[in-house]
Write a protein that binds this DNA or RNA. Structure first.
Lengths: 332, 332
DNA sequence: CCAAACTGTGATAGCGCTAACAGGTGTGGT
DNA sequence: ACCACACCTGTTAGCGCTATCACAGTTTGG
């Protein structure tokens, strides 16, 4: 930077100002400086900038898995929105394990993020206390937790799943099975299961057909393996509601292999409205969630938080609702 | 850090050493310091550390899209491997646009990454020269480019696609169509197309049935819309090779909607061996690529590069091959 | 027994940038 | 003519760490 300053005939401070948007520099000086910057191919060091200004320019995002179109969309939308404000996203994937989340948070806090975005699946005590102690603003996404850490951009997985089950009850189904996850304490999957069971109980229907197949995520492959287990244990099942679309697709294909008519003999539903659910034959009934909107609104919220910080105040706890609506398709 | 030093009765320098692994501190001093660190909940500032030590601890990875199971797997494997060495990954998604890659690279270089990983899809001149000028080690993945920037972890998309086409020719197919991307200069998709066409020409078969449907990526949805176009223009087509698995799945489902028997009336093949290709009914013929291995080997390579740097030398250009093999399944 | 080597710790001086304030110049109002 | 003020630029002093050298205390070896 001092090289640039010398050649442009100004002080390093003026170079620093010329490189920012809202700094007071005359148009001609800025142009002269930027010309030298381009000439030399100078690239400012953001580590140094961050240290001096106490603004790292980072936002940390924790998702269970990258290999999930939904979280990829959320992260993509968030990244793009924050980029407009010069913020970069640091992604961590927890593999659906709160302990891993805790460990990642430690690593992330070293980078002094300006905000933390957490996908809800339960947090350890240590995670909660570390984040609170750090004073970094937090946004939880993809659920509206009972005990939110601070801000929330999400929906009730329980209510959404309940609403889906109610629609299927209205459609005349009576014998439900739920294909879900094991080890699902405080997870979004557990909330979906609870929602389905609540609908069944409210309608006076049997609620015992719950298969806790494996730890999350349940893959397509696991969906194919779960179907025979359901058929064997509860041959009377009329409809299988799956914790997410990929395993619903797995169940569907296994039905096709076994020549079980869907929806004639068995109906199948998922959760999330992944692209595949609209494309497959038959198209899969599911709950549509706008994953991009979650990322976008979380990003907007973070910009609001920063704007408030500039004014010296801490933004009040926000809870931004996201729509999640059942979509009945051919599979039911 | 000076607080910790004062309470532990040592100098800040000793605290700094106690927090690292390979620094000379006596066991008892380190334990005493770490105890205070835990007591105070002190979290070292890695921005400051990076500035002082000239090691950012970052590796930049550019992928076309996060919303693609393959790149997600590659990035995931890379992230996990680099984490073992305390390195963090900064992800950028180019949306398949070299210009966006260029712009992202500028942003990334500000963070002084210790290595850059690029998914090959062609690079602009400016990208190439910026990276060379920066002196940061580069690894290109998912292809073996003709003019590599430096290191490579990948395979020939052309040869892999050619090999798939040859197998299908051996299986007796004669009238091929290729469903690919438009605007595919220097892309992996273009290499696949070239490979298929080379196989056809070598076998003396017609090679004119190429549909350049849309800019990458071709989605499932677009696969469903491409099928009618192929059928109309070239009703004699016996097999459609698609640039990637998702669009192959789209083509397959559209066949099912139109009651076109696959593979009886029309065969379908993809590229990449996404999970869906092994699950769908019929399972889709494709080219299997070990996406995780790409991430893992790229990570190992980066650790080698750093180890060499420690010894004061620059690692020779490496080119690490990845296997990509055709997998014939029910759809052909 | 003493020089040489090694071990653990501290003091000093930055890393490359920016916050905060100081000051010089020009403009307009009175 | 003077003051008030806006506007632009420079100076100084760090941000929170670590590289490097210095040095005391200890061990080693001939």
């Amino acid at each position: 930077m001092s090289d640039v300053a010398r050649i442009a005939g100004v002080s390093p401070m003026t170079v620093s100002r010329a490189l920012r948007n809202n700094a007071p520099v005359s148009r001609e000086t800025r142009e002269r400086v930027l010309k030298v910057v381009r000439q030399l191919g100078y690239v400012p060091d953001q580590l140094a900038s961050g240290l001096a200004s106490q603004r790292s320019g980072f936002v940390t995002v924790m998702v269970p898995s990258l290999n999930n179109p939904h979280f990829a969309e959320t992260v993509g939308a968030l990244t793009d929105l924050l980029a407009t404000a010069g913020l970069q996203v640091l992604i961590g994937h927890t593999e659906y394990q709160p302990e891993r989340e805790e460990q990642l948070i430690v690593t992330m806090l070293r980078r002094r993020p300006e905000a933390i975005v957490l996908t809800y699946d339960g947090h350890t005590r240590a995670t909660r206390s570390m984040i609170e102690a750090s004073g970094v603003p937090v946004v939880e996404i993809w659920e509206t937790p009972r005990r939110p850490l601070e801000h929330v951009v999400g929906f009730s997985n329980r209510d959404a799943a309940r609403s889906l089950a109610e629609k299927l009850i209205d459609a005349g189904f009576r014998q439900f099975a739920f294909l879900g996850e094991s080890d699902d304490k405080d997870t979004r999957g557990a909330a979906r299961r609870a929602g389905v069971l609540a609908a069944l109980r409210a309608a006076g229907l049997p609620d015992h057909r719950v298969l806790a197949f494996a730890p999350p995520p349940i893959t397509m492959q696991q969906g194919t393996r779960a179907l025979p287990e359901i058929l064997e244990r509860w041959p009377e099942t009329e409809v299988v509601i799956c914790v997410s679309d990929p395993c619903a697709f797995g169940v569907l294909t296994e039905c096709q292999r076994r020549k079980i008519a869907v929806p004639g003999k068995l109906a199948v539903a998922g959760f999330g409205d992944f692209e595949i659910s609209g494309i497959s034959v038959p198209a899969i009934t599911t709950v549509a969630v706008d994953a991009q909107a979650i990322g976008r609104k979380a990003g907007e919220l973070i910009l609001d938080i920063r704007a408030a910080e500039m004014r010296g105040v801490r933004l009040d706890r926000q809870s931004i609702p996201i729509h999640a609506v059942p979509v009945l398709r051919e599979s039911t």
